[in-house]
Design a binder for these strands. Structure first.
Ligand code: FES
Ligand code: FES
Lengths: 160, 160
DNA sequence: CTTAATTACGACCTAAGCGGTCGGATATTC
DNA sequence: GAATATCCGACCGCTTAGGTCGTAATTAAG
């Protein structure tokens, strides 16, 4: 029901942690897992996925671990979710495939695709550093979200 | 992975169908199901849920069926999804409950809650009649989505 | 060189939720 | 009272999310 997976949640937590500790050259999966009570082996696999996707750099062996591959401001939450959960679509039937046999008469998948793009855009606009900013996030994302909410809320009232 | 359920999909299809056929005073679940190849019994239950939620009016017996309880322009997709899939949160851990024991150290649920609100706002801004509008939907929702995408895309470029 | 830390990878397991079906009860019209 | 319908709960198979286990490969420290 439209919620992102716990894996993605964990991944975002880990990335935020890395962004908040730039002094450490490498952080082990176990460190992060212990810090937040996340199952260590699970988090390890998640970080491996993020490494394969190029969002993290890894270093095996003692004192090894993971580090951000890029500036945290240049890693969007969209990329993270994409790397962990794979391509996501709000429609249960991906229009590109033969997934659903109703697709030819389904009249709502087109407008919903636009909603999908909107959500993707929001996610793309939020970087890891936006998550890191303490207090109410004041990055671009915060502003955009606010704009979106304000301009929407007027219509919401109307719709209510 | 952040997709809405097929039930919600079906529900939206049915509501759109009702909105498109205002001449019919009542449409049976079977009619809609047959029109789109949706399992009839399943759709029936969905429409019943929508009725309980006050989005539809039902009438049993011959020539009975369902009809929109309100103007299609005053029924938001958010309400539909809410009625069918229940309250949705993008965070796997609902902050209101004791759902996740990490909640006290989880540092991302707060910023994600804002994302959640933004998405909810988008959904609230899109009514059934917006879905009905043929061609690229040109309701408030279309504009808003466009605004959101445009203003976001600039930042996306920056993030890329 | 041995040992410990740590990534990397795949098989596997379990519980939950989704999508769907069945059977019956109730209401309404003809 | 027969034909249509909505209503409602139980049930069920399948997929997936969430998590574990075991093991191999890599690296640093002693
Ligand atoms: S495309 Fe399958 S139900 Fe919409
Ligand atoms: S609150 Fe549970 S992981 Fe974020």
């Amino acid at each position: 029901m439209l919620k992102l997976t716990k894996k993605a949640d964990y991944g975002l937590i880990a990335l935020k942690y890395l962004a908040e500790h730039p002094e450490k050259t490498a952080v082990s999966a176990k460190d992060v897992a212990d810090a937040y009570g996340i199952p260590a082996q699970l988090l390890a696999k998640i970080l491996q996925q993020l490494t394969k996707s190029g969002l993290l750099k890894s270093h095996a062996g003692m004192n090894g671990g993971y580090a951000l591959a890029r500036d945290p401001g240049k890693i969007s939450t969209f990329e993270v979710i994409l790397a962990i959960d794979g391509p996501f679509f709000i429609t249960s039937c991906t229009k590109g495939a033969k997934d659903c046999e109703l697709s030819h008469n389904c009249t709502i998948k087109e407008p919903l695709a636009r909603v999908n793009d909107t959500i993707a855009g929001v996610l793309k606009s939020i970087s890891i550093s936006d998550l890191t900013d303490h207090e109410s996030a004041e990055g671009h994302a915060g502003d955009i979200a606010k704009i979106g909410l304000v301009s929407l809320s007027t219509h919401v009232v109307e719709a209510k």
